[in-house]
Design a protein around this nucleic acid. Sequence first.
DNA 1: AGTTAAAATGACAACGCTGTCAAATAGCTA
DNA 2: TAGCTATTTGACAGCGTTGTCATTTTAACT
Lengths: 344, 344
Amino acid sequence: MKVTINDVAKHAGVSMKTVSRVINKEPSVRKKTYDQVMQAVKELNYQPNTAARNLAGTSSFAIGLVYDNPNAYYIIDMQNGVLSRCKEEGYELVIHPCNAQREDMQAEIATMIKRSRLAGLVLTPPLSEQQPIIDMLDELGVSYVRLLSGHNEQEENARNCIYVDDFAAAYEITEHLITLGHKHIAFVCGDEEHKSTTERLAGYKQALADHQIACNEDFIHKGTYSFESGVNGAKALLKDGNPNQITAILGGNDEVAAGALFAARLMNIEIPAQLSISGFEDSPFSRQTWPKLTTAHQANNVISEHAARLLFSKTRGSRNHDKDIVTTFTPNMVVRESTGPAPR
Amino acid sequence: MKVTINDVAKHAGVSMKTVSRVINKEPSVRKKTYDQVMQAVKELNYQPNTAARNLAGTSSFAIGLVYDNPNAYYIIDMQNGVLSRCKEEGYELVIHPCNAQREDMQAEIATMIKRSRLAGLVLTPPLSEQQPIIDMLDELGVSYVRLLSGHNEQEENARNCIYVDDFAAAYEITEHLITLGHKHIAFVCGDEEHKSTTERLAGYKQALADHQIACNEDFIHKGTYSFESGVNGAKALLKDGNPNQITAILGGNDEVAAGALFAARLMNIEIPAQLSISGFEDSPFSRQTWPKLTTAHQANNVISEHAARLLFSKTRGSRNHDKDIVTTFTPNMVVRESTGPAPR
DNA sequence: AGTTAAAATGACAACGCTGTCAAATAGCTA
DNA sequence: TAGCTATTTGACAGCGTTGTCATTTTAACT
């Protein structure tokens, strides 16, 4: 029933170690030997025991995905991307949702790493932005890859980062609205402490500046990345009969935009005839509102797959070529029905 | 740096085996000894090595979550529920998304079980409904828990099932609509092969029957559990000026309902003034539409936590008491703004 | 105090694999 | 063909736990 490496070795007429070499794709195994072993593996339907490999080997065959993010779509995409890479490499994925608020979060992560002897970690925002965590990981000597908002700064410490250029995306969307004739464009920010918020806001401001549109601080509403925040933000911006004559709202993400859409509906405002609204991220969500959201497509599963790729390239003896790993992703604008020409 | 069980043993002045007993909460350890060991564990900050435990022990410290479901909210909730239980028990969770379409799915699952020597499996619908998979698991001798639509039938093989009573929930929602005066109530089904579809449809029919309302097969639209299907379903049901005078639509789930909402909007139908729409599952989604959806709340994280609980109660020497494990959950109706009195 | 059963603890060999290092073989050159 | 190096293979000892079973300690009796 249970097939061990020893069985395979006997069946192929070689030593256990040679089988091990084949399994691990180590070099210096003659083609003929390799084939013999593979044949035996197939015939016996041998499955290497992960626990034993983890225990005996230098590094384990598991990586971790750590997140503190309430957005289900985001997480699932991230997870799937990393998972697909793991499958490819024969690694296991240990997922670890956590709460940045909690005091013991760091200790918890450290515990997990030790217990599972993780080979590496993929960190998603906003955790990836927290220096204390990074410091702890460095101290523990675990390799990790951070998903960050921004663009590759060519810095030394950028080696283990994957960037999403939110600045560029926000710039593009804002410019799109400007081209449509909008002059009073508001922005409902996501969580202040997320770097994506800063980046998106900066892109928005830059686009305004480049088109000689003064940036009115009243047009910027501070909020969080949630539907409710979108509702409140839009309500606040448009209250008292929209004195600022806002004709477009940029949502911090799709949920915020959906919230703004919701608020607009409550106020009997026609979208996009009277008000344009755009989102961010292109979650499935943005296709399930009415009207559908203009947004910036961010292929989270691809991004996270590359994160895992990068991690593996560092973990193992760089068998992978770093060359084909993209480290900066720029979301593309997707124009749908929620944005239109500015009303006059 | 690395603390082993041996270090703890020395520090506490006992044998390795005794430390092991403490770690595993085995009986027959004197309180005094127990305290000594725990103290040493704390002082040295000892973390048991999962790989070694998996290798040496009879069963491993990992369970698997297998799913084939595109619904991100559903998966995340399920995952979180199982994960919280795992954390409690010191287990790891191996997640395994898969595609029921693929030929090699079964082999893949078997491989995963063998590689990781999983202690058990949690199966979510629709995979949990597929007999071939169940047979394979039985053959492999792995313990598992199935999440199913239906109610506990007290059958022998129901021992490892957690039920969600979709029948009752559909009945409740339909009755709610009937009470509001609706007589022409349509149903947009989810995927035909999902048991939840059958159950929900049956509940709907039963409610109609109990209230002497004839069931018109034209009111039943076969579709899938997707937004698009909701759009298409509603369009089909209401086309040509709504000849059937449908005043309410029951969506197969929240996404379908949101799709119906979308379609209604396209047709300039007021919700709920002209048409009531209700969903199913109470995903975050249902609170982010306009108007918010009436739906049936299904606490997926609680449900899955109980699934894990049940699994652990079977896996280990029934240290857990089966008694406090709920095996049938009935979703509660949540009335929001998408349903209202029937127009006259 | 002496006997016996029950409870608590410990010694030691697995678990299935990989790292280390030594041995064997192959591929050269002279 | 001997002599040498580079390549390929194998023997064996761990990795950090737990299972088995023997041993010691405690408790509960005469």
